[in-house]
Design a protein around this nucleic acid. Structure first.
Lengths: 210, 210
DNA sequence: CTTGACTGACTGACCGTCAGTCAGTAAGGA
DNA sequence: TCCTTACTGACTGACGGTCAGTCAGTCAAG
């Protein structure tokens, strides 16, 4: 086949992007390395020139996705013009707050049913996002809006429950069941953070009924 | 090879038991069907005579494990001589309550690092144990010990967080980090269920310091 | 008490697929 | 010209899964 040489960084990105798209479409297990290289038009060896193994590219995809999410979240957390609750809404809410071009966390994390990719992403998301959310909680405590002793650990616990329970199709909940879970999550989060009931109303938008 | 015929039920149990042991020891992915059948001393076809695929036996193992856990939990829940908090302690605590022969939930769930097996077990555990725990919470409400609006959904959320955060090695926490998580979990659970602070002290035994 | 049709647990050679390897080749700068 | 680096693709070994066939046991008919 015609040999096309690209800058290593560009090739690497190309492989990550293509593999990520195929994994999301068909699932990690169902995607062979063969599929990925055929889609790009390179040889098997090229893939293994850039990645040691198939699991390694999975990690690379997760890392890249997480970098984007973390950057966005950090941007919100650093915005001095927002209150803690406004930041929470920007990161956890279902509606946009100001700019429409950046999708919020909940949307970016919504990947299809894919055990390996999903679980890895969930765990990494929780570990990397929790510290950021914790600083927001601390801001909320300073504002007199929240009242918790250990923001980081509390956020981590709540976030884990939320992430695994309602994300992806792991539990196989219907849309109605998910709505009830989100309702309860709001109430538990408010109690756990010592926030006023209803503070996290944005988690359950009063959308179209029926 | 010498042909040894067994009663189908016995053979099925033998395969489940052996596969489960090997999966726990080496992990689902690292165990080939070849390994399992060599250990038992039967042919490849025998395995596929009893199970349609490798994933199917994973499900069978999880089902069997869960049946045992659920039975035990139901036994505790049905014990009319116990208060709601005593039942919670029996199921979630780290110390035994009466009989020493039956290991409690936390112990039975403590499987080694094994993505596929672990995640499936976690999800199924939460789905099947939550209704039982919810009835205990309702008993607690009747006893004036708890105060929650939606016991089932609340339990499910809390249980999910607890299960995924502290079980197995998913998050790679150290023992000290785990202890802090358990401390926070206790406090959040008490707040979420409307229980008195300290009610769930059994989740954090005042063990040997240092 | 035979005999022979029948059942179903069990066998193991075989297949297709896939992750991963490696000896070698083209491209391009020094 | 030579060397480094990006790239090639035939190949390997292992794995999950298949299937035509084997064989011990059962039971009804003769």
């Amino acid at each position: 086949m015609a040999r096309i040489v690209k800058a290593p960084e560009e090739r690497r990105e190309e492989i990550i992007e293509t593999a990520g798209r195929l994994f999301r479409a068909h699932g990690y297990d169902k995607c062979s390395v063969e599929m990925i290289i055929r889609e790009i038009g390179v040889a098997k060896g090229t893939f293994y020139y850039y990645f040691k193994s198939k699991p390694e590219i999975l990690q690379a995809i997760v890392d890249k996705t997480l970098d984007q999410i973390v950057e966005m979240a950090q941007g919100v957390a650093d915005d001095a013009s927002l209150s803690a609750l406004q930041k929470m809404e920007a990161l956890l809410g279902n509606s946009h707050i100001g700019n429409d071009d950046g999708p919020e966390v909940a949307e970016m994390l919504h990947l299809p049913e894919n055990r390996a990719l999903h679980e890895l992403t969930n765990i990494q998301t929780i570990l990397r996002l929790s510290p950021i959310l914790a600083t927001i909680v601390e801001q909320g405590i300073a504002e007199g809006e929240f009242d918790v002793e250990r923001p980081l650990e509390t956020i981590q616990f709540l976030f884990t429950g939320a992430q695994f329970l309602t994300d992806g199709g792991m539990f196989g909940f219907t849309e109605a069941e998910l709505r009830e879970r989100r309702l309860v999550m709001q109430s538990v989060i408010e109690k756990a953070l010592g926030a006023k009931p209803g503070s996290f109303h944005f988690m359950n938008p009063a959308g179209t009924m029926g």
